[in-house]
Design a protein around this nucleic acid. Structure first.
Length: 414
DNA sequence: TCTGGGGTCCTAGGACCC
DNA sequence: TCTGGGGTCCTAGGACCC
């Protein structure tokens, strides 16, 4: 089963104001202060009546629309997500439970029927328990494998009560191949759709009847996956979970700036703040990173037509803010040609547990230890009294955004 | 495309090794 | 630099998901 929460953020907001989510006319807006702020979630009625959906911008909202626009409350969404997942865990063991996003989880119920009955009975029981506990409407896609469950969810379960749909291998010709738009199929986005169209392929049935060699030649291993997926084939099993390569994954933070940043010192200030944020996350998890990357977006295409640049560099494994800032500053100044900035981000990869400490030829060991203790102390003060209790002086300058963003979770109001 | 923010995975091409 | 063949690691960029 693939289960998601219908219009999750908007539903939580409806419940906060004692409304039934499916009857509410509300939407959640990120960054009220910016006209370019966008809708993070809209209630089903808003979607149906006004076409307001994820990605709609604030300036597209018209006064005649009868919509209650509210600010996000990320902490609530996270808390309720935990509550709902704990309900799922009443039905399957943890090895058969997989959290896909803040409002979507997969459950392998193959071995649970003896306790809880048929797929339909289990789905209904889970939906009832989620609704009774939280007020959230859960929608359930059921399938012979993860892919079919996900496709059943995205393409059928979400449309009508009782918010359930089942897709099996025998449904592939009638349901999967009949999906209206290629992009409604998980893993096909706008670019892949265009490339398929150029090959004369407009439906999933046509993908299925394209030789795998042809797809492989055009899309590599993703072409192989596309071929199998077009036949509804997916052998992944939650209990035999794929472990991502440690070095391939990482994390980072980014932000769209409220105005153009044109001065080097401003750019460096905001980059240092984001780097500090990422370094703090590393330290909190007791990890070090050995690759650090920056992503810089311009407010308009530059003289060469470039809209952004990104670059990465290898560093001695570290989670120290000062070392990471040094690398970020070097990369920025080496690549920046004075373009006005509107988007900045920092991320780390090749993240792992520290095995040893790399001392530095120019820094005495005592000083190194003292510096580590200083950063740990800063972390402790902030976790106890809040980020704003102790900030860098540069954060008080014009370019800084860390203080005003201190209360955000995932970039949205906590 | 951008608008907001956080992720993962794949490929091409360069540089280097034996 | 080329000769023969096999391989790894790295960076940059593209594409997808929520």
């Amino acid at each position: 089963m693939c289960i998601d929460c219908k219009s999750f953020y908007a539903s939580v907001e409806a419940i906060r104001s004692a409304e039934y989510p499916l009857a509410a006319k509300n939407a959640v807006l990120s960054r009220e202060e910016s006209a370019g702020g966008l809708i993070l979630a809209a209630s089903p009625l808003c979607k149906a009546n006004y076409g307001v959906r994820l990605g709609t911008r604030q300036y597209e909202l018209r006064p005649d629309m009868d919509i209650q626009v509210v600010e996000p409350h990320m902490s609530d969404y996270i808390r309720i997500n935990y509550t709902i997942n704990d309900i799922y865990r009443h039905y399957v063991t943890d090895s058969e439970w997989y959290v896909y996003s803040i409002d979507e989880s997969f459950l392998d119920v193959t071995l649970a029927h003896g306790l809880f009955g048929s797929n339909g009975q289990m789905a209904a029981a889970i939906q009832d328990e989620v609704f009774d506990t939280t007020g959230i409407v859960a929608t359930v896609g059921i399938g012979d494998n993860m892919l079919l469950a996900k496709l059943a969810l995205d393409n059928e379960a979400k449309t009508n009560a009782p918010w359930q749909a089942t897709w099996t291998y025998t449904d592939v010709p009638n349901k999967l191949w009949k999906i209206d738009h290629l992009t409604d199929f998980w893993s096909i986005g706008s670019k892949t759709k265009e490339k398929l169209n150029l090959m004369g392929i407009y439906t999933l049935g046509e993908v299925a009847y394209t030789p795998i060699e042809v797809l492989h030649k055009r899309f590599g291993v993703l072409g192989d996956a596309l071929y199998f997926h077009s036949w509804g084939i997916d052998y992944s099993r939650l209990s035999r979970r794929y472990k991502p390569r440690r070095d391939a994954t990482g994390f980072g933070n980014s932000q769209v700036l409220m105005r153009d940043y044109v001065h080097q010192v401003e750019c460096e200030t905001v980059l240092a703040e984001i780097t500090d944020q990422v370094a703090t996350r590393l330290r909190k998890r007791h990890l070090v990173a050995s690759v650090i990357a920056i992503e810089i977006g311009f407010s308009e295409p530059d003289k060469d037509g470039k809209t952004h640049f990104g670059t990465q560099t290898r560093i001695e494994p570290t989670n120290r803010t000062d070392e990471m800032v040094q690398a970020v500053r070097y990369m920025f100044n080496k690549n920046w040609e004075g373009q006005a900035l509107r988007h900045v981000g920092v991320r780390v990869t090749k993240v792992r547990r520290p095995e040893s400490v790399q001392l530095n030829f120019w820094e005495p060991a005592e000083k190194h230890v003292a510096h580590d203790q200083l950063e740990q102390t800063i972390d402790r003060i902030r976790s106890r009294f809040g980020f704003k209790a102790l900030v860098r002086a540069s954060s008080k300058t014009a370019g800084g955004t860390a203080i005003s963003r201190a209360g955000l979770v995932g970039g949205h109001q906590a």
